[in-house]
């Protein structure tokens, strides 16, 4: 996972962008994580006949190569589908700057190395306005120092310690958690028999 995310930023000012919009349901009928780039924002990016919509920021120059999105409030709300995060990453997005993210989306992003720096509404508006300039602007998300850099400016962002650690260490959570198997077995020994769910097959 990258400790620094650097790249062109695109503004996506809509609030409440939900995971149905990020990854429409017709792309979910799959048993793998692959091939989801084309589904990402599909209804915003393409017309019915699959031609690109020129009113969508990632279809316009210079933002077709954007690596960072600056987004409206409550990004990633709705369904738990991790396909939304897989698709964004496959589209080349490495960081999304916003004021608030839905909880499941936030956790899914962390598992896939997609950085979600949280900033104040004022800082977001400032970054969004700059990102909307026709020449394009690049930002640097420095995860270790929790700072967004643009030109000479440094703007702090919030990211909880565990998420920051996960990004910096590039840790595989499942394998890491199995290192605490003894604590888990201790906990289980303390359970009564009727606290152990056994689903009837």
């Amino acid at each position: 996972m990258p400790k620094i995310v650097h790249g062109l930023a695109a503004a996506l000012p809509l609030a409440n962008v939900d995971t149905d919009v990020i990854m429409p349901k017709r792309f979910l009928i799959t048993i793998t994580c692959e091939g989801l780039a084309e589904g990402t924002f599909a209804d915003l990016r393409f017309h019915d006949d699959d031609t690109p919509r020129t009113d969508f920021v990632l279809n316009t120059r210079p933002w077709h190569g954007a690596r960072i999105l600056v987004v409206g409030d409550n990004f990633g709300c709705g369904s738990s589908r991790e396909h939304a995060v897989w698709g964004l990453v496959q589209l080349g997005i490495q960081g999304i700057i916003g004021t608030s993210f839905a909880g499941i989306f936030y956790d899914n992003a962390r598992k896939n190395g997609l950085a979600l720096p949280i900033v104040s509404p004022e800082v977001r508006d400032q970054l969004m306005q700059a990102a909307s300039h026709e020449d394009g602007v690049s930002y640097t998300i420095d995860i270790e120092n929790r700072i967004i850099r643009t030109g000479e400016t440094e703007l702090p962002f919030d990211m909880d310690d565990a998420t920051q650690t996960a990004h910096l260490e590039g840790r595989e959570d499942t394998l890491n958690s199995l290192e605490f198997a003894d604590a888990n077995r201790n906990y289980e020994r303390g359970l009564d028999d009727q606290q152990r769910v056994r689903v009837i097959q």
Partner: peptide, 13 residues
């Protein structure tokens, strides 16, 4: 609710 990576985590741990 949890994502698919977390589904894997619950299954394993």
């Amino acid at each position: 609710g949890i994502g698919t990576s977390e589904v894997e985590h619950v299954l394993a741990t």
